[in-house]
Each structure stands twice: as C-alpha cells, then as structure tokens.
Write a protein that binds this DNA or RNA. Structure first.
Lengths: 337, 337
DNA sequence: CTGAAAGCGCTTACAG
DNA sequence: CTGAAAGCGCTTACAG
C-alpha cells in the first residue's frame, strides 16, 4: 500500500496524492475530496521513512531525559512530563522517540538525534552551557525546546514555571500565618530553578521588611538526606518556619525536626515545593507548591511543533506556567483542627 | 555526510562501506579496517530513514504503554519499565519510540507502528485476545513481545514474573508466622496476573491443609478504595492475616483495619504485592513482594531484538523472572521489636 | 571480495 | 491545478 496505489484508485498522479496528504493548497476541491475518500477507505499511512528521506521531515519528535531524573522514582516528574509530551504529539499527529541518558551513551544519542534523519526536533529537560547535547544542538541549529529556564544568552526556547514567584508565594503563606523566623533549604545553586526559588524567598522576606541573616539559608542536594542534614544545621537559628525548595528535602527536614522533639505544623511550620504524591501521605501532610508538570510537557511539545512549522530563525520563545499553593497541615494553618 | 563521502575517503565503493557498517563477512580484512577508521574519524551515523526505506529495518523499537497505566503515578512501574527497555536499546544500538495509549488514538497508533516503515518491532505491556493492537500485530505477523503472560493459545513471546509462585510465597510467609485465618483481596479476574496471584493463594493454603471458605476471597480493582471496601467486607471473617494482591489495595486494607480498631502487624498481619515506594513509608511499613520491573523491560527488549535477528517463525519464547519477598513490619514478623 | 545499478516510497521543483 | 521525473541515502541481488 503506497502512494502509487492510492493514485491509481483515485485516478490521479502520485504527486497529487502527496499534495492532498500534505495539505497543499494547489489541488482542486473535487479532486481533493476524491483522494481523501480513498485515503480513508484504505486507512492509508504514508511511509515515514520514505517521507523522512525525501522531505527531511518525519513528524517525529525526540524527548531526552537526563540521567539522574529517572532514578528519583518517588517523584513522578518524568512520567507526567512524558504524558504531556505524548498527548501533544498525539494531538498533532507526531510520533515520539525517547532517550534516557546513560553515562556513556551521550555521544551516540547525539548522533542518533542529529544525523539519523529521523527526528524533526527534540525536547530536552535540562540544559546548561556545558551540556554536550545542548552544545551539539546549538552548533547545528537543530530545532529544540527546553523544559526549564535557560541562561539569558542561550538562544533557546523554553517552557518553565515561575520559580521566583512560586517560591515567593510559599514564603508569603508562612508570613501570613504569623511566622517570622523563616529559614530555607535551597537546592544546588548550579541549577537555575534552585537560584530562582532562593530569590523568591528573599523577595518575600524583603517585602515583609525582614532581612534574613546568612545563617538562615542552608543548602541541600534535593534529596531527603540533604534536607535532613541542612535542617540539623538550621536548628541553631531557632526558626519558626522552614521553606524547603523540594518536597524530598522537606521530608528530610521534617525528620530532623521530629528528631529534635519539635512538632511540625505547631512549633515550626514547614512548606515544600513540587507536590510529589508522597507529600500528602506524610505526617503531617505537607503544604507545598504544585507544578503543572504534564502541562509543561504539553506546552514544550507544542512550542516545538510551532517552531518546526514556522521559520526557525524566529526569536526564541519563553513560556511560564502558573503553579498552585496546596495547603495541608505541615504549615500549621489547620493546627487548631 | 553520507555513504558516498565515506566511500570516497576510504577509496572503496558505497556498497563496500555499507557492507562494513552492516558487518557483512564479504569484505577483505584490510579494506574493512581502512573503512572502519574513516567511519570513526568522521563519527558517521547512517541515515536511518534511508536505511529503513531500503532495507526495511530501522533499528528502532516501539513501546506501547496502555492507557490506565500511566495514570497510576504513585506506582513507578511505567518509568522503571521504560528504563529497562531503554537501557537494553542502548546496549544494542537500538532507538526507542514510545506510545502512550489514548482513548481515540489506538487506530492511528496501529497505523504508525505497522505501516510507517519506521519500527522493527514493538513491546506491548498488556495483551488480551480482544485488544485491537494485539489483533493488528498478530494479523500482520508484526514482531512483538509482551510484558505479562498471555493466554496459552496466543502465539506471542512474553516476559513476566511468576505470579503464582510469588503469591504462594507471600501466603507461606504468613503461614510461617503462625497465621491461619488468611483472607485475600484479589484483583480483577479478567487480568491474568490477578488470576495467577489468587491461584498462588489457594496453592499455599492447600499445601498447609487449609481449605479457605469462599467468604475469605474478596475482590478489588487494584486501587486503594477497592482495597478499603473489600477489607470492610472481609472483616466479618475475623481474619488474622490478609494477602492483598497489590500494594495499593494493601494501603486501603490497612486503613479499613485501622478504622475498625485493629492493629496491623499485631492482630492482623498484612502483606502486599509490588513494592511501590510508598510501601516502605506506610505505618506500619508494608511487607510485600518486589517485582524486578526494570529487568522485565530489559528482557523484553532483548527478547524482541533476538527475535528480529533470527527467524520470525520460531516458537514464541516465554521467560519468567524471580521476585523477592520484602519483610517489613506489617506482617508482624517484627512486632516484638 | 568488490562495484555498478536498481529500487525502497516518498516530495518537490519544473514544465505545462 | 496537475503530472513526469529527479532525487533523498541507503541496501542488495547481480555480475564479475
């Protein structure tokens, strides 16, 4: 079953069938209808390999998931993101290829993406100047979109949440509950999101005319252990609230607080960031900021598809999605219940 | 950069380069070496679209994830499975395409898989006789492997755990702890795994010369709510132990028990199945059976690749992987601690 | 063991 | 608006 067959069945040339399939305007309406009818009757699917070869377009998108990501299995970030990308692909008749980065496979992955002639564009979920994948994509001006904000001077489109204002909102919630000695466990500052969340923390305190001493800020690596250790150090500040910039670190912090005989939600209010499923099952359930992960994937795919349709030289697009404050018991808002 | 270029650089014909790339034996050793050297120097990647068109092979595998799957996000089954498939693909130089089933997209997905000329073979993660995807694959004898046992009379290769013996092991653990009134919450019996786990339950009791009355067996839909409701009904049997055939249902069961004032791990021992991350965070932590999910994905991909290399008419292969009993507090083994 | 040539199924200037 | 023809980059009988 190929174009030639469809052409014969509908009494036109192969070229015309191709035009109909690709929505070219240069087809007479009645001819178009005739061909479309045959197309539907035969349930025809053009051979993507041939199309890829002839036109340089395959209607296949790639998604690159960095290494560490898929290892944090308590966190459904990765499946939700895939879900979003996949549903956008479905909606736009694209197919999806997936690469989970492995230690030694980056070079081959780059080859497969850039030189296989198989992929129209790619979504990557982390990007910094030294990232070899980003490098390669930029060097060949291969179309791509990043999930997560990138440095200003990298000419790349991205989709992200507004980490600054989301973190600010979290801290403002604590302020609204009367908390004043609010410390924070920030993430690794080589990650853009970590920097932004810390900035949001400062912004909220500053607006409340609170100037946090340097000791109020400690750092973790986004893991429970990191949160636990940071919290132990922060206890010396005698905080009445903690903003942890990931739920995982909040879990660790809660453990450290409990170990010190402090009741979370009463003596110390605790707020996280992400809203992983486990957050609602903690004791006490964790107040946190929910990211629209699936939507991030969806918007990234749609941004990429738009970029593939239009001219590639257009200015990089940036899109920030809204987050949601999820109030549970750990911040003490319901402590009287 | 194409075969022609490589041919010129190494002083041979395009055909010979192709033979070297595809490990054809019909190349003189010194010529082969010369070509390989150029290949490495240029970091050449053959155009997969062209190869797909010419040879009908692309070195791309497909993975189909059924709908409900990706919605159970507390369960890392899906990311782990992808991880396994992906790492096998990396090891064998295959690339991976992914489809998450959506309500209306099955037909297009089938078209993309079967008729796009893009995919050498596909891994599907559920399969029953009426499944349209399975139907289509069988009808066209498209190469595929199933994760999860399929009915005897379906000529399909599969990888699975041994659900019967794993469930039996779980129930034997309860028996070994002196429990005798062991009830079970089975899964939906239209799922092969649910039937098998129930059979394992019967086998263990039968070997212990216990004949469970029909009331001891109730059913859930693998969700927490289902487990909660089933447990409420089972309370009338005055059980001293419960085998829930999924962790999610075990969580629901624990809640129902606690609501009835029963201490899990003391008055009633509880054991689950799956070992989702949440299992270890429950109160009390859940004893359960751990599945080697990542290995399932890996073995499925390798089985498929083997099938693609060999003749397709060989007998379907079946492979069962071992599970592990993870003993925590919910079964009461440590209740004296 | 090696090369020239046909062909895989599309798209797309080009000519009409 | 439509068709004949070239060409995308490979693989693979075929001939030597």
């Amino acid at each position: 079953m190929n174009l030639e067959t469809i052409a014969r069945l509908s009494g036109v040339s192969r070229s015309t069938v191709s035009r109909v399939i690709n929505d070219s305007p240069n087809v007479r309406a009645e001819v178009r209808e005739r061909v479309i009818k045959v197309l539907q009757e035969t349930n025809f699917q053009p051979n993507l390999a041939a199309r890829g070869l002839a036109a340089g377009k395959t209607k296949i998108l790639g998604l690159v998931v960095p290494q560490g990501f898929s290892q944090i299995f308590i966190d459904p970030y990765f499946p939700l993101l895939i879900q979003g990308v996949s549903s956008a692909c479905n909606a736009h008749e694209y197919a999806l290829m997936l690469w989970l980065e492995e230690p030694k496979s980056a070079q081959r992955m780059i080859r497969q993406i850039l030189h296989s002639g198989m992929i129209d564009g790619v979504i990557i979920t982390s990007s910094h100047r030294s990232d070899p994948v980003t490098q390669a994509l930029l060097a060949r001006s291969f179309p791509f979109v990043v999930v997560g904000r990138v440095a200003e001077d990298l000419p790349a489109s991205y989709v992200d949440i507004d980490n600054v204002s989301s973190a600010r909102r979290a801290v403002e919630h604590l302020l609204g509950l009367g908390r004043r000695r609010i410390v924070t466990i920030a993430g690794p500052l080589n990650m853009v999101a970590a920097v932004d969340r810390l900035q949001g923390y400062y912004a909220a305190l500053s607006a409340a005319r609170i100037e946090p001493p340097p000791e109020w800020v400690d750092y973790g690596d986004y893991t429970q252990e990191g949160g636990f250790e940071a919290m132990q150090r922060l206890l010396a500040c005698q905080p009445d609230a903690v903003f942890a910039s990931s739920d995982a670190m909040a879990v660790g912090a809660a453990r450290a607080l409990q170990a010190a005989g402090i009741t979370v939600g009463r003596e110390v209010a605790l707020i996280g960031f992400d809203d992983v499923p486990f957050a609602s099952h903690m004791q006490p359930p964790l107040t946190t900021i929910r990211q629209p992960i699936e939507a991030l994937g969806q918007f990234a795919a749609e941004m990429l598809i738009r970029q593939l349709r239009g001219d590639r030289t257009s200015t990089p697009a940036h899109q920030l999605l809204a987050t949601e404050l999820i109030v549970r018991q750990s911040c003490g808002a319901y402590s009287s219940l």
